[in-house]
Amino acid sequence: MSEITPDLVRHLGVLARIQLSDDEVTRLTGQLDVIVDNIAKVSQVATPDVVATSHPIPLSNVFRPDEVGETLTREQALQNAPDAADGRFRVTAILGEEQ
Protein backbone atom coordinates (compact mmCIF):
# COMPACT_ATOMS: atom_id res chain seq x y z
CA MET A 1 0.00 0.00 0.00
CA SER A 2 1.12 3.55 -0.65
CA GLU A 3 1.16 6.39 1.81
CA ILE A 4 -1.79 8.45 0.56
CA THR A 5 -3.53 9.87 3.60
CA PRO A 6 -6.53 12.17 3.97
CA ASP A 7 -4.17 14.89 5.24
CA LEU A 8 -2.05 14.56 2.09
CA VAL A 9 -5.17 14.81 -0.09
CA ARG A 10 -6.29 17.93 1.79
CA HIS A 11 -2.81 19.41 1.34
CA LEU A 12 -2.90 18.65 -2.40
CA GLY A 13 -6.32 20.30 -2.56
CA VAL A 14 -4.91 23.44 -0.94
CA LEU A 15 -1.96 23.49 -3.36
CA ALA A 16 -4.36 23.10 -6.29
CA ARG A 17 -6.70 25.69 -4.75
CA ILE A 18 -9.55 23.19 -4.75
CA GLN A 19 -11.93 23.13 -1.82
CA LEU A 20 -12.68 19.50 -0.98
CA SER A 21 -15.48 18.20 1.19
CA ASP A 22 -14.85 15.38 3.67
CA ASP A 23 -16.61 12.94 1.32
CA GLU A 24 -14.38 14.02 -1.57
CA VAL A 25 -11.25 13.66 0.57
CA THR A 26 -12.29 10.13 1.54
CA ARG A 27 -13.09 9.15 -2.06
CA LEU A 28 -9.93 10.75 -3.50
CA THR A 29 -7.73 9.15 -0.83
CA GLY A 30 -8.82 5.71 -2.02
CA GLN A 31 -8.57 6.59 -5.71
CA LEU A 32 -5.12 8.16 -5.43
CA ASP A 33 -3.95 5.22 -3.34
CA VAL A 34 -4.96 2.82 -6.14
CA ILE A 35 -3.23 5.00 -8.76
CA VAL A 36 0.03 5.18 -6.81
CA ASP A 37 -0.05 1.41 -6.19
CA ASN A 38 -0.53 0.74 -9.91
CA ILE A 39 2.35 3.03 -10.81
CA ALA A 40 4.53 1.15 -8.31
CA LYS A 41 3.58 -2.17 -9.97
CA VAL A 42 4.53 -0.84 -13.40
CA SER A 43 7.82 0.45 -11.99
CA GLN A 44 8.62 -3.02 -10.69
CA VAL A 45 8.04 -4.57 -14.12
CA ALA A 46 9.92 -1.90 -16.07
CA THR A 47 13.45 -3.22 -16.24
CA PRO A 48 16.41 -2.02 -18.33
CA ASP A 49 15.94 -4.87 -20.82
CA VAL A 50 12.37 -3.74 -21.60
CA VAL A 51 12.44 -1.15 -24.37
CA ALA A 52 10.34 1.95 -23.71
CA THR A 53 7.56 2.51 -26.23
CA SER A 54 5.33 5.45 -26.98
CA HIS A 55 2.81 3.27 -28.79
CA PRO A 56 2.02 -0.44 -28.36
CA ILE A 57 1.69 -1.10 -32.10
CA PRO A 58 4.38 -0.09 -34.62
CA LEU A 59 3.22 2.78 -36.79
CA SER A 60 4.09 3.47 -40.39
CA ASN A 61 3.90 6.68 -42.36
CA VAL A 62 0.53 6.89 -44.09
CA PHE A 63 1.13 10.17 -45.91
CA ARG A 64 0.95 10.26 -49.66
CA PRO A 65 3.63 12.02 -51.67
CA ASP A 66 3.03 15.70 -52.40
CA GLU A 67 1.88 16.23 -55.96
CA VAL A 68 1.05 19.52 -57.61
CA GLY A 69 -2.59 19.53 -58.56
CA GLU A 70 -5.35 21.82 -59.64
CA THR A 71 -5.82 24.79 -57.32
CA LEU A 72 -8.48 27.43 -56.92
CA THR A 73 -8.02 30.85 -58.40
CA ARG A 74 -8.19 33.81 -56.05
CA GLU A 75 -11.64 34.66 -57.39
CA GLN A 76 -12.91 31.10 -56.84
CA ALA A 77 -11.59 31.06 -53.29
CA LEU A 78 -13.25 34.38 -52.45
CA GLN A 79 -16.53 33.91 -54.34
CA ASN A 80 -18.50 32.71 -51.26
CA ALA A 81 -16.70 34.83 -48.68
CA PRO A 82 -19.07 36.98 -46.60
CA ASP A 83 -16.67 39.90 -47.01
CA ALA A 84 -13.56 40.35 -49.15
CA ALA A 85 -11.33 43.28 -50.00
CA ASP A 86 -8.18 43.66 -52.08
CA GLY A 87 -8.15 39.97 -53.02
CA ARG A 88 -8.25 38.79 -49.39
CA PHE A 89 -10.79 37.58 -46.85
CA ARG A 90 -11.94 40.48 -44.71
CA VAL A 91 -12.59 39.75 -41.04
CA THR A 92 -13.31 41.85 -37.98
CA ALA A 93 -10.44 42.96 -35.78
CA ILE A 94 -9.69 40.81 -32.76
CA LEU A 95 -7.86 41.34 -29.50
CA GLY A 96 -8.21 45.11 -29.74
CA GLU A 97 -5.94 45.36 -32.78
CA GLU A 98 -6.44 48.43 -34.89
CA GLN A 99 -6.35 48.35 -38.64
Rank of each mutant, 00 (worst) to 15 (best):
residue 3 E to V: 09
residue 4 I to F: 07
residue 7 D to A: 12
residue 7 D to W: 01
residue 7 D to F: 04
residue 8 L to A: 14
residue 9 V to G: 00
residue 9 V to W: 02
residue 10 R to M: 07
residue 10 R to K: 15
residue 13 G to K: 06
residue 14 V to K: 15
residue 14 V to M: 10
residue 15 L to S: 12
residue 19 Q to K: 10
residue 21 S to T: 15
residue 28 L to R: 03
residue 28 L to W: 03
residue 28 L to K: 02
residue 28 L to C: 00
residue 30 G to M: 10
residue 30 G to V: 13
residue 30 G to P: 00
residue 33 D to P: 02
residue 37 D to Y: 10
residue 40 A to R: 05
residue 41 K to D: 09
residue 41 K to G: 04
residue 42 V to Y: 13
residue 45 V to K: 11
residue 46 A to T: 09
residue 46 A to N: 13
residue 47 T to H: 05
residue 50 V to K: 12
residue 52 A to L: 12
residue 52 A to R: 13
residue 53 T to K: 13
residue 54 S to F: 05
residue 55 H to P: 00
residue 55 H to K: 04
residue 56 P to T: 06
residue 57 I to G: 00
residue 57 I to P: 00
residue 58 P to V: 07
residue 59 L to P: 02
residue 61 N to G: 08
residue 63 F to E: 11
residue 65 P to N: 10
residue 66 D to W: 14
residue 67 E to W: 04
residue 71 T to A: 14
residue 72 L to N: 04
residue 74 R to V: 14
residue 75 E to L: 02
residue 76 Q to E: 15
residue 77 A to F: 08
residue 80 N to Q: 07
residue 80 N to G: 03
residue 83 D to V: 04
residue 84 A to T: 15
residue 84 A to V: 11
residue 84 A to S: 15
residue 85 A to D: 09
residue 86 D to N: 14
residue 88 R to L: 08
residue 88 R to I: 00
residue 90 R to Q: 03
residue 93 A to S: 12
residue 93 A to I: 04
residue 93 A to E: 09
residue 96 G to D: 08
residue 99 Q to P: 12
